[in-house]
């Protein structure tokens, strides 16, 4: 059974419904990311799990128990805030010790645990500093230590790296992943950064307008998106309506015959990334051929990008930089059969 389950959750403020009939389940020891653009409800969902707000309807089940109405201070969940939310009037030591003091542990144990955790996040010797005397990356690690030291049953991250510069972001996400694998905690991670989220997670839930469009491993999402939204999200830019004519054989709107590696019942949509379409001279005899005319040619360094107008819509194609096609020229596109993904 899943460690955490959200069932039919509805959440929002007043008239503004953000999540409707929302479901999510997280297994023990899993690192799950909620990915989506701002306003998709990912942070609302996370804050509700933490107990910062209550759902309007639905249930939160944790470890078999109903947690829907459990007050936040009784949940034993860790939370790493986007703003870090360190207590500015307390030293690093007292910040990290806060949760243990609230649990009324004895002084010696607290001291031992805090120093150990500061060592884990590589902040030895910073005990008596105040948060404002530290850099963004260091504060981030204090926040992490403070959340980890209480040995939370579940650790939540709300865009924890968004205030760091690019280099530090990559370093910290490796660090977070390392800690998670070392300590084995269950984590839910909210971000709008696709790369970050694919790098760090066991499973990714991509959210759109308050629902999870797809929840899978990063590679599954990357290679086999289930909806057009997800496909666009992970870099598919070309979509064609297809009608099934036989096993793995389809017909495009303009009558072109498309053969694919996968199969799909009835009519569907085929999608393909710009890099998986090749460009050939007009009339070339290539598999899955579609005729078109070059609209725009853009130089992108390593590659050229062509926008090609065809009978079945505009295609975005990425070509080798020495393969030059002038604007207005008629070309033949070839879609790699094993790279076409079929969706409803």
């Amino acid at each position: 059974m899943a460690l955490l389950e959200l069932k039919n959750i509805t959440a929002g403020y007043d008239q503004n419904i953000i999540l409707k009939d929302f479901d999510l389940s997280v297994e023990k020891g899993e690192f799950v990311s909620l990915l989506g653009s701002s306003g998709c409800g990912k942070t609302t969902c996370l804050r509700m799990i933490a107990g910062f707000s209550e759902p309007m309807a639905g249930q939160i089940i944790f470890d078999g128990k109903d947690y829907t109405k459990v007050p936040l201070h009784k949940r034993n969940f860790g939370f790493v805030f986007q703003s870090y939310a360190l207590f500015p009037h307390l030293t690093v030591f007292d910040n990290v010790a806060f949760g243990l003091k609230m649990r009324k542990m004895d002084k010696e144990t607290i001291r031992h645990e805090v120093l150990h955790m500061l060592k884990v996040v590589d902040l030895e010797g910073f005990e008596s500093r105040y948060p404002r005397e530290m850099s963004g990356g260091q504060r981030q690690r204090v926040a992490l230590a403070r959340a980890l030291v209480i040995k939370p049953d579940l650790l939540m991250f709300d865009e924890p790296l968004s205030n760091l510069d690019a280099k530090l972001r990559v370093k910290m996400r490796v660090e977070i992943r390392r800690l998670q694998q070392e300590l084995g905690f269950t984590a839910i991670y909210v971000t709008h950064d696709q790369e970050e989220c694919f790098a760090i997670s066991d499973k990714v839930a991509i959210m759109n307008k308050g629902v999870i469009e797809q929840m899978d491993t990063p590679s599954e999402i990357y290679n086999r998106p289930k909806t057009e939204f997800i496909a666009r999200f992970v870099g598919f830019e070309n979509f064609i309506d297809l009608e099934r004519t036989g096993g793995c054989e389809f017909k495009a709107n303009n009558g072109a015959r498309i053969v694919t590696a996968a199969d799909h019942e009835g009519s569907c949509k085929g999608c393909i990334r710009p890099g998986d379409v090749t460009v050939h001279a007009a009339g070339a005899q290539v598999p899955n051929a579609i005729q078109g005319r070059v609209l725009v040619s853009t130089f992108l360094g390593q590659r050229n990008q062509l926008n090609v107008q065809t009978d079945v819509g505009e295609f975005v194609v990425s070509t080798d930089q020495n393969q030059v096609f002038p604007v207005g020229e008629t070309v033949t596109l070839s879609l790699a059969a094993n790279k076409i993904i079929l969706i409803d």
């Binding site: 910062f52 034993n76 609230m102 649990r103």
Partner: peptide, 10 residues
């Protein structure tokens, strides 16, 4: 967030 953090820490 500070009061939420305090609550979250117990």
């Amino acid at each position: 967030d500070l009061t939420l953090a305090a609550g979250n820490l117990g």
